[in-house]
Write a protein that binds this DNA or RNA. Sequence first.
DNA 1: TAAAATTAAATGTTTAATGAAGTTAAAACA
DNA 2: TGTTTTAACTTCATTAAACATTTAATTTTA
Lengths: 226, 226
Amino acid sequence: MFNEVKTHEITVDIVILTIKNNSLNVLLVKRNNEPFKDKWAIPGGYVRMSENLDEAAMRVLKEKTNVENIYLEQLYTFGDPLRHPVSRVITCAYFALIRSEDVEVVTTDDLAWHKVSELPPLAFDHKEIIEYSLKRTRERLEMCPVAYQLLNEKFTLTEMQKAYEMIMEKKLDKRNFRKKVISTEGLRELNEFSKSSSKRPARLYTFDNIKLNSKRAHFIKKGTKG
Amino acid sequence: MFNEVKTHEITVDIVILTIKNNSLNVLLVKRNNEPFKDKWAIPGGYVRMSENLDEAAMRVLKEKTNVENIYLEQLYTFGDPLRHPVSRVITCAYFALIRSEDVEVVTTDDLAWHKVSELPPLAFDHKEIIEYSLKRTRERLEMCPVAYQLLNEKFTLTEMQKAYEMIMEKKLDKRNFRKKVISTEGLRELNEFSKSSSKRPARLYTFDNIKLNSKRAHFIKKGTKG
DNA sequence: TAAAATTAAATGTTTAATGAAGTTAAAACA
DNA sequence: TGTTTTAACTTCATTAAACATTTAATTTTA
């Protein structure tokens, strides 16, 4: 019984989402060890004795992307005995929404963004974890305009609508979408316009006050550096 | 590093809620070991190597209440390094909504229902866990009529409204509440009436088809016995 | 024991807010 | 001048919120 307990291992795994090239992307690492050597996986790592789960997730996120002041939320804990083929690893999954402009990721053969609509074969149960993170993101979007976390700091309403449509996987009515967004607390209209390649320029907006209605969501503050 | 991993312990803890004596109650056990000896705690136990987290939670639930076909949902995983004063214990918290009529609990000095509004001092971070389970129950109630899980199989609309008011901690309009509930899929009107001690008898209702709109909620099926 | 008082159950309408769909105009470019 | 995208204004339909009286049983009391 005591031995049983001692052989669990606990990790955090993080689904890191952003919008790039007009589509929703997730950051994946290629595994260089067994099991699932050479398969893609979401970034993760063991929880250290000195840190809590949020801190472990933040650390992993920082290691991979060098961002640290973003939307990070505990997703779900996956603990099937067979999810890891060798040992018993229970993972506490998180998901993060980040701006691609904030990320200092040097993508290599072993670390790259992948469209969530075109995922490669994934290690462990990571496909399930990513799908669940999308479901949760959809729930969040119904509560609060959290999609701006995925967009550049200054964005057009059309860009935001595209983000919504991508995540919700359905078309939205432009007029009603704009009406709703414009009435959102925190949105600020700028006197700047997108210099898009063609047609009428669109006004840029930004979010001032972060006000998340989500009960579970927390805004991870910048921690101590180093 | 490897040692670090090995010294985590993982448990499940379950907030078991029901309605008794016109108030919301939670099942607590009195600890007979250190740490927090003689303090009240929510039921829990170590996750065994052979079982997943849901199964561990169901097992603990069955041990304490002998119910096994009820509303059980993973709540959140609590992993603060200091939440356990002696060792590093990460707990995956669940919450369950049960009917008190279904429960075969012999309450003793060490196992008893407590009003959530009058909680005794609790072990570990269990107060936080209970509070969070109430928050989540409120969220669920806004999505689906899950409160019937707390009521007897046959209930009056007034009883159900009381349950809502208890959990939401606010008064509801009787006519709007009834209108909404009556239009809910799965509710069935019975030709039976409560033989309450006095005054006009109220019609009894029951729920036929369980249809949970919650994304995270799952209805735990009866597993293999023994 | 019949009438009156009491208590909880049951029921509908009106108004406000929100969501869905239609129309038109303005700015840039081809 | 025609096309495309942004932007604003309008109308209709649906949903949510506010609100008061009647009915059926029991209890009281004359």
